[in-house]
Write a protein that binds this DNA or RNA. Structure first.
Lengths: 135, 135
DNA sequence: ATACATGCAAATAATTTGCTCTCAG
DNA sequence: CTGAGAGCAAATTATTTGCATGTAT
């Protein structure tokens, strides 16, 4: 039984305000890769008093606690993943759709490369850009 | 003899203004991963009349022509690589130093993954974050 | 009670753009 | 000569922050 995001927030000692509950429920009930603007739109639909600043502050907070992961694909804004399992992203260059995939070989390679260069691995990201095969 | 960046710009039909020559020489005589601000500072040292807007416009132009590659590491601004060979980046999380490395296995894996997901590969990037091994 | 959150509006920071003038081809 | 490029300053966009007020614990 994985803990819910809300559980983790409580475990992290976060004050569970009404706004945070709404934002967290948006995150839990959406596909990944939401932008702040998207979170804001959906949260506002549940509670019209929520401000954009609060969404930004909340996303930053969750990011610092590693409860979400901030990503910069090649866009002018950030998107956020609701944490959990490691995975990589394939971004459709024509539609901006984001597909997740896993691959166990990559991590092994990355670990080896970092070691060879004399570094301790902290994190890594692999992004693949492509478009759907035609016909 | 690889063509110089200047050669490629001319080949691409770019008007070689004084400002562009300076910017290009800065790019050719610096380490990779420059930010616009860094390019601007160095270009200004050669020709104090160069404006930041021109540097932005030039970098965008070079990026569109694939003569440089724009990167968003986890910073608030972009950095640019002077094209040429494919490589990946290891970013030192403590110093922001960027180390380039190559790895032939990754591309094969990426190509395979894209194909399996039904995509034509356009591009891919791998970024590794770490810090120097202590003692 | 009280420290921490929120809303709002103003402030930043990076990047882009309108406009007029200049210059490379 | 002429259209693409440059400088400057104002505009945009994403994100952050100061401050007065509200609220979870």
């Amino acid at each position: 039984m994985g803990k819910t995001l809300q559980d983790r927030c409580i475990a992290a000692g976060l004050k569970m305000t009404g706004q945070r509950k709404v934002i967290i429920s948006v995150l839990e009930n959406s596909d990944n890769h939401l932008s702040v603007e998207m979170v804001y739109e959906r949260a506002k639909a549940e509670d019209s008093s929520i401000s954009l600043a609060t969404v930004y502050r909340t996303m930053n907070l969750l990011d610092e606690l590693d409860l979400v992961i901030r990503h910069d694909f090649n866009e002018s804004f950030s998107r956020y993943d609701v944490n959990i399992d490691d995975h990589y992203h394939l971004i459709d260059t024509e539609t901006s759709e984001v597909v997740e995939f896993e691959n166990s070989e990559v991590e092994a390679i990355v670990r080896k490369v970092a070691a060879e260069l004399g570094y301790d691995l902290v994190d890594h990201r692999l992004e693949v850009y492509g478009h759907k095969k035609k016909a």
